[in-house]
């Protein structure tokens, strides 16, 4: 029985991708398979496997690891977007993600309409959203453009509006994936302040970042992931050190390999000796 003393309780989590379906299937491919012409490829890929961790109330967890380690997949699973194929995820509280900002904007309708639409997608009550709308518009700082179609917005305006909507309601469990800097200098200052507020109010935080200073600054604990598994778990400083050491080791190994290939070759055997 998962303990409710934890805000997040992940047990033996496994997320599997079906490679046959991921490859934009067409009827032709499936029919060919039915007839028996099976392609000889691995049909499954475990993006995550045997993941176990708990996050207590008030704790923040950092996740580090190289590209393709499964960090983002883990966040998607925590957000409920990907269903576990194995194991379980227990969350105590409302979870929210700040993934790519501005996803789901409807280009042809106004910013105001988009606030309502995205809010409804996020499952925020209509009343709450109506009350929040003025503060969202103010925070996004897009002035009279709010009633113009989003299509006419600049990239920065879109990002600001997306950020303002996504952070309008403070979640219990905050999932962050590299969004600590958007927009110009002025907005970045305000958005960092907003993130700090959310962090202060959230019961639990999961932060994925390639910027290791964020991990040591914001987190109480950190895990290192690679190839869909947890390799190390400890204090942020220890984990970051372990990760850096691992990267250094890898680099050294690569250099050694490279060195072996660039070593001067033994003197080639000349042709005229072979002759006769």
């Amino acid at each position: 029985m998962p303990d409710s003393a934890y805000a997040v309780d992940v047990q033996d989590l496994g997320i599997r991708y079906n490679l046959r379906l991921t490859r934009r299937t067409t009827l032709k491919g499936s029919l060919a398979e039915l007839v028996g012409r099976k392609q000889q490829v691995e049909s499954h890929f475990w993006a995550l496997r045997h993941i176990n961790f708990k996050i207590g109330h008030g704790e923040s967890l950092g996740i580090v690891g190289p590209n393709g380690a499964g960090k983002s997949t883990l966040l998607l699973a925590l957000a409920g977007i990907l269903a576990p194929n194995e194991g379980s995820i227990t969350l105590n509280g409302r979870v929210s993600t700040l993934l790519t900002l501005g996803a789901g904007f409807e280009m042809e309708v106004s910013g105001r309409d988009n606030i309502g639409l995205i809010g409804a997608f996020m499952g925020i009550r209509h009343k709450t959203m109506q009350q929040l709308t003025p503060s969202i518009i103010e925070f996004a700082d897009i002035g009279p453009f709010i009633d113009a179609p989003v299509r006419t917005y600049s990239t920065g305006m879109r990002a600001r509006l997306g950020f303002a909507i996504a952070t309008a309601v403070a979640p219990d469990i905050l999932l962050l994936d590299e969004v600590l800097g958007t927009g110009d200098e002025e907005f970045r200052g305000r958005s960092q302040q907003r993130i700090r507020d959310l962090v202060a109010r959230a019961k639990a935080i999961v932060l994925v970042s390639h910027d290791l200073t964020y991990i040591t600054e914001f987190c109480d604990r950190a895990i290192l992931m690679d190839m869909g598994q947890i390799l190390y778990e400890g204090s942020p400083a220890e984990t970051v050190e372990f990760y850096k050491e691992r990267v250094r080791q890898r680099k050294r190994m690569l250099e050694e390999e490279a060195h072996r290939f660039t070593m001067p070759l033994p003197k080639p055997v000349t042709l005229d000796r072979q002759a006769s």
């Binding site: 977007i81 993600t97 789901g104 996020m122």
Partner: peptide, 11 residues
């Protein structure tokens, strides 16, 4: 048509 959003939000 809503693939973008489905990959980002649970609904």
């Amino acid at each position: 048509g809503r693939g973008n959003l489905i990959r980002q939000l649970q609904f």
